[in-house]
Write a protein that binds this DNA or RNA. Structure first.
Length: 418
RNA sequence: GUGGUUGUAGUAGAUAGGUAUUACACCUGAUUGUGGAUCAGGGGCAUUGGGUUCGAAUCCCAACUACCACCCCA
């Protein structure tokens, strides 16, 4: 019987794990540079937590739902923001404001896997709560830009497209649109880039708009100038002060699917359009905490997945080359030297050097080959003749140069040469 | 959930019905105290399950995977 991985899941062999750790380290470093603290929550939540605000599609179609033995409906987390909101609401008064938190949880969504999209993935979330002004939104965008730069992306390789849902609302009002049509209209607006113009027009006319209105809407959505709409003006002023205005652009067609967003919404895109989808997404959610029983507390956050980031880096040829690193590999000439080899290895480890010890009595040839394949900087060869003088051979596996070193000085000397 | 493409050793990549090829990797060896070269030798593979056929990697069906387009999204 051959058992494979569950559809849409991944094994992280050490090679892959090295990349994942590298990625997470970058995400943590940048988050912490801005004063964000890491948190985590449970893998399972009550389904009700998502029922209210996450959006029908996400909850009904994409969430893994299971029943506990006690008959309660549980959900495997399909996103992290509701957990964050629940945690914040539960201890709202004792938490220092503003709340700056980040997390990298694994998230599950029942979707058709394809490139850049799995069923289990890790999702970096950065959130700031307790700030009403656009200062918070600007900070989140700044963290986002810095993360992408830290991952090695350069200007022109990504763009943060920003909109404000209230701007869009006013726009629709100015066109005298029936507000009951809004969800349908938003949906089409969100997809405008992917749809052919004819299809876009046809869809909207089907939703009840007349041709003249559709044309006006199209023109308005092409507008890259938000005029005197204050929240966006405030935001842009800050973005300029951060020095990141060159990485962002205003795009009135950004909507986002989650119901809880209010005000600012933004997405990171690949300007070359190699990805026909957002790489990151986020926005402001001013009502979510009250929806979960807390006092009013505004929030802004962004999320992205390890899968899309990896795909993005790969497409751009920016995947880091991460070799396994090991300081020393200790080999011995014959079984008689093994006790000393063990002592030598312990000594190196006590000195803080990562050290692998050969555990077999294979020929020196084989052991050196193993040392070479281990990725170690040095092979330490414990052999009888040198041992009589209290010395071991140290071979630099890159330069192939060999030196003789007194056992007591080994750790110190190696540290100096790494 | 819908439609399409796909699946050959660890990896890459031939094979258009007749005992599966090659490269790299791997293992063994080349007078026994030194790894990456060279040489010689070696093991391992047609996703799975059915069907057609004297005979299937090859044709047909199904399942599964990955990928692509919808859908949606990170």
């Amino acid at each position: 019987m051959k058992i494979e991985t569950v559809k849409g899941t991944r094994d992280f062999y050490p090679d892959k794990m090295r990349f994942r750790n590298w990625l997470f380290d970058k995400l943590r470093q940048v988050s912490e540079l801005y004063g964000y603290e890491e948190f985590d929550g449970p893998f399972l939540e009550y389904l009700d937590l998502y029922a209210a605000k996450s959006g029908e599609e996400l909850v009904n179609e994409q969430t893994y739902i299971l029943e506990s033995r006690g008959g309660e409906k549980l959900a495997i987390r399909p996103e992290m923001t509701p957990t964050l909101a629940r945690m914040v609401a539960a201890k709202q008064n004792e938490l220092r404001k503003p709340i700056r938190w980040f997390t990298i949880p694994n998230i599950w969504r029942y979707e058709q896997p394809q490139r850049g999209r799995k069923r289990e993935f890790y999702q970096w979330n950065v959130d700031i709560l307790g700030v009403e002004s656009m200062d918070a939104d600007a900070e989140v965008v700044a963290v986002t830009v810095d993360v992408l730069k830290a991952l090695g992306l350069e200007k022109g390789e990504f763009v943060v497209r920003i909109n404000n849902r209230y701007y869009l609302e006013e726009l629709l009002k100015s066109l005298n649109l029936d507000l009951s049509l809004e969800p349908a209209i938003y949906r089409e607006i969100d997809r405008i880039e992917k749809l052919k113009p004819e299809v876009f027009r046809a869809n909207l006319e089907q939703a009840g708009l007349d041709t003249a209105t559709v044309e006006k809407l199209e023109t308005a959505l092409r507008n890259r100038n938000f005029g005197d709409f204050k929240p966006l003006r405030d935001l842009w002023e800050r973005l300029e002060q951060y020095g990141i205005a060159e990485y962002v652009e205003f795009d009135p067609s950004i909507v986002r699917g989650l119901l809880y967003y209010t005000g600012t919404v933004f997405e990171v895109w690949d300007p070359t359009k190699r990805f026909r989808r957002a790489i990151m997404g986020g926005g402001r959610y001013d009502n979510l905490i009250t929806a979960l029983g807390g006092q009013p507390l505004p929030g802004v956050g962004i999320a992205c997945s390890d899968v899309t980031l990896e795909e993005m880096l790969e497409q751009l040829g920016r995947l880091p080359k991460l070799a396994r690193t090991l300081d020393a590999f200790v080999v011995h000439y014959s079984p008689a030297e093994r006790p000393t080899a063990i002592k030598v290895a312990s000594q190196l480890r006590n000195g803080g050097l990562t050290t692998e010890l050969s555990l077999s009595d294979l020929s020196l040839d084989k052991q050196l080959k193993a040392a070479s394949n281990s990725g170690a900087h040095f092979a330490i060869i414990v052999a009888p003749a040198e041992l009589e003088r209290g010395e071991v051979n140290v071979k630099n596996l890159q330069t192939r140069q060999q030196q003789t070193v007194r056992v007591e000085e080994l750790a110190t000397i190696l540290k100096g040469q790494l």
